[in-house]
Nucleic acid binder design. Sequence first.
DNA 1: CCGAATATTGACCATCTGGTCAGGATCAGG
DNA 2: CCTGATCCTGACCAGATGGTCAATATTCGG
Lengths: 204, 204
Amino acid sequence: MKIQQPRRSRIQNKNRNVILDAALQEFSARGFSGTTIDQIADAAGLSKPNVLYYFPSKEAIYRGLLVGLLDLWLAPLRELDAEGDPVEQILGYVRRKLLLSRDYPNESRLFASEVLHGAPHMTEVLSEDLHDLVAEKVSIIAGWTASGRIAEVDPHHLIFSIWALTQHYADFDVQVRAVMGEGPDPYAGAMIFLEHLFRRMLAP
Amino acid sequence: MKIQQPRRSRIQNKNRNVILDAALQEFSARGFSGTTIDQIADAAGLSKPNVLYYFPSKEAIYRGLLVGLLDLWLAPLRELDAEGDPVEQILGYVRRKLLLSRDYPNESRLFASEVLHGAPHMTEVLSEDLHDLVAEKVSIIAGWTASGRIAEVDPHHLIFSIWALTQHYADFDVQVRAVMGEGPDPYAGAMIFLEHLFRRMLAP
DNA sequence: CCGAATATTGACCATCTGGTCAGGATCAGG
DNA sequence: CCTGATCCTGACCAGATGGTCAATATTCGG
């Protein structure tokens, strides 16, 4: 059964995307409640009623953003391959996730803000899609620890550590910059640090 | 030179604290913009005008919270002692920070939310107090790596990793619970995991 | 126990904000 | 080039929200 997809004209597609881009910028900077439809409209170069012509409500824009970005967000974990070399697979995941934080910091902050406030718009997604995906990858990692190919670590906490360590640089960007002062891009140093960390931690 | 401290009656002290407690609960759950003075007043068991009798504005409550909690938040890092055993000192810091996340999750989320949205109310605190404190501890750790007492890791990223790994469990609590399902307290497993991680990473 | 200082409140106000609507502009197909 | 569908807008509305104020209640020192 196919879900009814509304036909969209060229102009509709363009403007919907313009709005979503603007909304991402505003929501990620100020949060859901801190953002007004007027701000989104301004950032998108449209009038407020026009924005509401494309989306029925502010909440609809927000939800549209979240679901539209979910695949992007989960893709790096999906690629984790049971057949590959364990350490390289995990390091590859770390690398992909760190690059995602570097290249999509607004998306990172959007999800962070949502989860931080209890994920009121994604509870089902978290406990279904994310839960299942993680469960699948956890069993792969558990296989690796059981066979002694990597050190004995709790797979759940291993995954949490990858999320925490990589997203930190995007989510708490201002803090990182305030502490390190004006200097080179933190991501280069971060990658070196994380490679050292995970190689050491995972060595059998 | 002493800053003029207003004399506070017993009742003032009590109600100011009641308000700050209620505000912490509300702000940490819904963010600054998502929280109304009425919600704070209700949670505090006071009327809205009465809340505004003790604090001149919603923003004043928020700032009062942040500055009041700053010491609590930085205390674990302050205790890091150049004279102690390096690995034990760092592990001690990790432990204290993890317990702080477990016992003060609302405080953690309050700071996380503030930093996430660009720290509009704490920029100077970040780039002065926090920057200086971290700089001091970074030089201690740099001494340890230079003398070969711990592995060569970038001290800044080491501190970031401690922040990220410990605060993750408080800040993204719903996600952690959604992924792990109903089970035992995640903090026990987290402490075991983090001890393994940091011992391995830091071994000379 | 009294009067002054301190607390508390209901009523109120100005502004902001999400959302609506009727009508006008623009576009696409015939 | 005509017509219907799509797109866009100014004006508007209702409710929420931060904050004020005059008046009342309570507390506290003497």
